[in-house]
Design a binder for these strands. Structure first.
Lengths: 338, 338
DNA sequence: TTGTACGCGTTATCAT
DNA sequence: ATGATAACGCGTACAA
């Protein structure tokens, strides 16, 4: 009694037998057809098709000590910003031999570290991580892994490896400068989930006010996750404390939309009574009445660029630039047209 | 000269040597600590910690012919509806031994089939697919795979295996009945990306009008992907053709929001001049001014239930019910309060 | 409770 | 250009 543990699936040897060659020849034919004679190749291709051969990725990974997995670790799957980046990643990964594996940190550094460990243990071809605020342990893991890594969403000094994003501080500063140019003076900052990127946008807000010698800053924030409803609450709280505010720079577009709805509820005219500026330029900002000013960020391109940088690094020709700054565009609309 | 292809990583045998036992004992200890003596277990745990042992998943998969991967195949990562479901999946999968692998069909049946093949070739523990409109080939692949499968988003006859969702037709019907009860009579249907689920919502719209003996139906649709801006355009087109319309049932919330903005632009009062009802009840519907009526669907719970059904099926105790109907709730708000 | 022997399906190495 | 052989790291089957 033989003890067979075979999976019942067609294997390389089955194909080899059918094609009248050895298993290794089939393996080579599948990986690089130029290393096999025309005749053998033709027979192998037929056999593969006839038998419906599908490679066993686990065996490939075990034997070669490599995978074609690109891991992406992002803080949230429901945040529109990250889902756009993800879409860009999927778009770019199509047509490459790579497969995406997704991890969700829910905005916690510890979960990020756990995910990095898990992913690295699978010997991924490359890794995408979000932001520049990894724990020291995570940075160390990534640096010593030998796996190409891209940090996305943000640029900054001291990249782990590759990097694509933009400066949130400069972007926020430009937005607030726009408000100042539009004639607003008592400009508030509305922010939720004060994560590191939001903190740096707050710095940009202060930069702009400082440059303009406006020294009162009106800052309303909450650690709670951002939402449209929260945007309304934040504006309400702000007005209770400082009814004389004349514009709000919102941490993101959901908050800006919520602020608009709240202003409408209170019959505050936008932009004459209150200017509103968001951040990210989601699709609905243009559609709103009045249309809402925002800072356009290049999210799809960010995802696509991340994949391209990784692909090049994996294939051995490291990109010239390790850091790609995709910039941003302040997009003025009716909500700040005084 | 030995030809070693070792990866340089710590293996089971390394741990075994350090603990003074054989590799298989370590293997057992890690999978089911109750099958190993206390003393051995303690030494093994120390060795694992000391050496920083991380299991090689490829080797595990190859030897056992199993993985702990749950594959999820969804049509879009940027659609809020699916990202909520995804969030529910991630929430539920935490604390289980399973890992999620995500596929993105971009709403094409062929890409779905390709992804199902790819996923199945990795011998996943279970699979989540979206909707009930798989190609016959995909259905066959899934049915014969022996892998537990959950269809999510929608209920219907003839499940492939497990199923969790709700009836889009009944939900749409209930929404339109609400509009009729509110006193609206010339009710239009605004729809984008007329995918099968949207088509079934259209049927529900017709059901309600038929029951109420309202026989004119005002249907404005486009195959283009849904967006807030598109919602505005659809309402504009509708008004050009039928200025006497008194309410719109929107295929989804983005379209409803776009319709609201367009109505504001045209100084059409909502709800008195135009009633608006959306579908899915995204967060911003409650925040809008006026707040927008919608149909609440249980997206997080849908994702969570899918994982629970799968987990039970994987572990051998099939759930009592193969089909879970999560239902829906019409949520009336200011936009239909005549 | 523990161990021995071997197979899982593929690729690396070396030889022809 | 092709093949023989061994190795990748782990789990299964069976024995002790």
């Amino acid at each position: 009694m033989k003890k067979s543990r075979r999976s019942g699936k067609v294997t390389l040897s089955d194909v080899a037998a059918a094609a009248g060659v050895s298993a290794i020849t089939v393996s080579r034919a599948l990986r690089d057809s130029s290393t096999v004679s025309e005749g053998a190749l033709a027979r192998i291709e037929r056999a593969v098709a006839d038998l419906g051969y599908v490679p066993n990725v686990a065996a490939q990974a075990l034997a070669s000590n490599r995978t074609n997995i690109i891991g992406a670790i992002i803080p949230s799957v429901t945040n529109n910003v990250f889902s756009d980046v993800l879409k860009g990643i999927y778009n770019a990964i199509e047509g490459t031999p790579y497969q995406l594996q997704l991890g969700n940190t829910r905005y916690t550094v510890l979960e990020e570290e756990r995910l990095v460990r898990t992913f690295l243990s699978q010997r991924p071809a490359g890794l995408i991580v979000s932001g520049i605020d990894q724990s020291p342990a995570t940075r160390e893991l990534l640096k010593t892994s030998g796996v190409p890594v891209v940090q996305i969403m943000e640029t900054g000094p001291d990249p782990i490896d590759l990097m694509v994003g933009f400066s949130h501080r400069l972007a926020a500063r430009a937005a607030v400068e726009h408000l100042i140019e539009a004639g607003y003076r008592r400009i508030a900052f509305l922010g939720a989930r004060m994560d590191p990127r939001t903190q740096r946008r707050l710095l940009g807000y202060r930069d702009a006010l400082g440059d303009a010698k406006i020294d009162e800053d009106l800052i309303m924030t909450t650690p709670r996750p951002s939402s449209v409803i929260l945007g309304g609450h934040l504006l309400g709280d702000l007005l209770a404390r400082r009814p004389d505010v004349d514009a709000v720079f919102c941490n993101n577009d959901d908050i800006a939309l919520g602020a608009l709805f709240e202003a409408q509820r209170r019959n505050i005219a936008v932009p004459s009574g209150l200017g509103i500026c968001g951040f990210n330029d989601l699709e609905y900002m243009e559609a709103a009445t009045p249309s809402l000013t925002s800072v356009r960020t290049h999210r799809l391109q960010m995802g696509a660029t991340a994949v391209e940088l990784l692909a090049r690094a994996i294939e051995g020709n490291r990109p010239e630039a390790d850091v790609v700054d995709l910039g941003f565009d302040v997009t003025p609309r009716e909500s700040t047209r005084r």
